[in-house]
């Protein structure tokens, strides 16, 4: 498959890696996103928090079109993908965007018929056209990084949840993404396994990767993020540096939410 080329980003920090404008999403008659405008710049780590049903996961999934937005615009590196009203993005455009992002899911979603190594190398080889040798080399490096080198030939079913999620992170990194999307990466884990996964995500944040993390882990949000975004009822209720947003919430709803998770 040909890798679809998007135009190169314009020079300067002014162009966000990803931006949404007035993004809306309805499931039938229920509007889940009620106009979300959002920007994430290169090297930013942004935590997205909010109660369940606030629309935070749906928002993340709309950014790479796993959910089709009902209307609004998404810019990826300055390239606009309009939805509704304007021209709908084609499957090829969507695939192009997805190939430049990596995603980590709550339920890991490793491909169960492939070994750990195969899970990591198949997308680079079959989607990005990376030579196998090179893909394997990179996969081994990534497995070392997430501390699972010895599981290279294991099947996902034989791994613990924490191990599976670390493999899923290696899988996402293998495509050298310009943006990493984490959809509640620790919510499905037993409490004692949360630490190992957060440690890996923390290390990635320190590398200066651009990351959007939907999470319930407030300590993680406070220590790691450059920005925290609080979703309430399908809108961004409040956003800002973690020190401000988490310590002195202006919105009474955020205050109540923070009390409830403490």
């Amino acid at each position: 498959m040909n890798k679809t080329e998007l135009p190169a980003s314009q020079p300067g920090l002014a162009v966000p890696t990803i931006e949404s404008r007035d993004l809306r999403k309805s499931f039938g008659a229920v509007e889940v996103l009620k106009g979300v405008s959002f920007k994430a710049y290169e090297h930013q780590v942004i935590s997205i928090i909010g109660a369940s049903g606030s629309g935070k996961s749906t928002f993340l999934r709309c950014l790479n079109f796993l959910e089709a937005p009902s209307s609004g615009e998404i810019d990826f590196k300055g390239r606009s993908l309009e939805i509704g009203g304007g021209r709908a993005p084609t499957r090829i455009e969507i695939e192009g965007l997805r190939r430049r992002t990596g995603m980590v899911f709550q339920q890991f979603n490793l491909w169960s018929h492939w070994t750990v190594l195969e899970n990591i190398i198949k997308v680079p080889i079959h989607v990005h056209g990376v030579p196998r040798q090179q893909a394997v080399q990179r996969a081994m490096d990534l497995l070392a990084k997430v501390g699972l080198r010895e599981k290279v030939n294991a099947y996902p079913a034989s791994l613990s949840g924490g191990q599976q999620q670390r493999v899923a992170i290696a899988r996402a990194l293998a495509v050298e993404p310009e943006l990493l999307l984490f959809d509640e990466p620790t919510s499905a884990l037993d409490p004692e396994l949360v630490g190992e996964v957060l440690a890996v995500i923390r290390a990635l944040a320190k590398e200066g990767r651009t990351m959007l993390v939907v999470t319930h882990e407030m300590s993680f949000a406070r220590e790691v993020s450059d920005k925290v975004v609080f979703f309430h009822d399908g809108r961004i209720e409040e956003e800002g540096p973690p020190a401000e947003v988490l310590r002195q919430p202006r919105s009474p709803r955020l205050g109540a939410f923070l009390k409830s998770v403490r």
Binding site: M1, N64, L66, R91, E95, G96, L97, R98, R99, T101, G102, M103, F105, Q107, F108, N109, L110, W111, S112, V123, H126, V127, R171, V175, L181
Partner: peptide, 17 residues
């Protein structure tokens, strides 16, 4: 499992792949 198909989509696999 739907999640495995979703993961493939999220990484930009074409329909045939």
């Amino acid at each position: 499992p739907k999640g495995q198909i979703e993961a493939a989509n999220a990484f930009g696999m074409t329909r045939s792949t």
